[in-house]
Amino acid sequence: MNTRATQIPFMKMHGLGNDFVVVDERGRAPMVDAALAVAMADRHRGVGFDQLAVMRGSEAADVRLVFYNADGSFSAACGNATRCIARYVMGETGQDSVRLQTDHGILAARDAGGGLTAVNMGHARTDWHAIPLAQECDTLHLPIDGTPTATSMGNPHCSFFVTDAEAVELAVQGPQIEHHPLFPQRTNVQFVHVAGKDTLRMRVWERGAGITLASGSSSCAVAHAAWRRGLVGRDVTLRLDGGEIGIRIAEDGIWMTGPTAHVFDGVWRVAS
């Protein structure tokens, strides 16, 4: 972290209650590191967030994004934060579409009308080494009780299809699966049931964050896993604790469409 920065401007945003702190480092020296992310993530002594996103300059896209989880670890993808920042950059530039560079690749985003923002999260990966898993196995039916499905959206996901997602003890089962030895980089965990035609009810335990009201990359992973299992078609509505989001499994990638909110701006004062 740049120790000369004593005040760090930030924005608080959320997508369906999945909340973020966003720091704009474009044209500035780096200000964010893992220790700062952990301090700001504290919901009692800091700002509080599920993920922190850093905006940086990019020669390949409109902006480059770097993501920290609440525990200070990195994530290559964060779908709802990407949508929130895309909406911000579109408002800033007057464009109706933008490109955002992430460790998962360059993602296209666009104004979907009605105040909604869509982002193409790229293609899901289902090869065991791409997720990654600790050993070769069938990613559609993992050798774990409940035979969940593993998917990568730039970060690992483990999706359990259950009778009633509401009945799952998420705070107990989530961390157990996050740290399962089959996932050397830990994993995001979802419990989901079919709630209607092309409609899924999902609850989420996020790697490095815990229970969250929503998760964009998890929504994409679950929709793709359910499609692989023949439970839904290519256009899926997911009902999350924070609201509904739309997923479309298209030829050019998985598109996610939903609302965003820019809640407030603030300044983090670094102790001298």
Rank of each mutant, 00 (worst) to 15 (best):
V194I: 15
A29C: 14
T187W: 01
V23T: 06
P143E: 01
M31W: 08
I177W: 08
G174S: 02
E244R: 15
V54E: 10
V232N: 09
M90C: 14
M11R: 09
H44Y: 11
V63C: 10
R239L: 15
G48K: 11
P181D: 14
A29F: 07
T163N: 15
N155E: 00
G146T: 03
L52S: 09
L107E: 05
D33M: 01
C158A: 00
M256G: 00
M31A: 13
L200I: 01
I131K: 02
N155F: 00
A171M: 07
V32H: 04
P143N: 02
T163D: 11
P184Q: 00
W255D: 04
H44L: 11
I245G: 12
V232Y: 09
M55L: 07
R125G: 07
T6V: 13
D198V: 08
T139A: 06
A130S: 05
V162R: 00
P175E: 04
V21D: 03
E178Y: 13
D198S: 05
D241G: 06
V98E: 09
T151R: 13
Q95K: 15
A223Y: 15
S215L: 12
P259N: 06
V66L: 12
T117S: 09
D252Y: 11
G114H: 15
T163G: 10
R83F: 15
E178F: 08
F191A: 02
L36D: 13
T149C: 01
V172P: 06
H14C: 13
R4C: 14
I211E: 13
M55R: 07
A271T: 12
T93Y: 07
D265M: 06
R28N: 14
H179K: 14
A195D: 15
H262M: 15
V98P: 04
I85A: 14
P175N: 01
S75I: 14
A29D: 11
Q135Y: 15
P143Y: 02
R203G: 02
Q51V: 03
A214N: 05
R125N: 05
L107P: 01
V270D: 00
P184I: 01
R64W: 12
D252V: 12
S272D: 05
E169P: 12
A76Q: 13
G122C: 04
G94T: 14
H157A: 00
S58E: 13
L142V: 01
G258P: 03
V54K: 06
A29M: 09
P148N: 00
A209N: 05
T102C: 04
A61F: 08
F49I: 07
D71L: 05
H44F: 12
Q135E: 08
I254A: 06
T199N: 08
H123C: 09
T149N: 02
M40G: 15
C158N: 00
A5R: 07
T139P: 04
I247N: 09
I249Y: 10
G113R: 11
D111P: 13
T257V: 08
H179T: 10
G246V: 11
I8C: 13
F160Q: 00
E92H: 06
L240F: 12
M1R: 08
R125P: 09
M256I: 00
A195G: 06
E136P: 11
R4M: 13
E169T: 05
L100A: 06
V189S: 03
F10E: 14
P156Y: 01
A167S: 04
V192N: 04
G174K: 06
V204R: 01
P148C: 00
L52V: 04
D164W: 07
P181S: 05
V232T: 07
V89P: 15
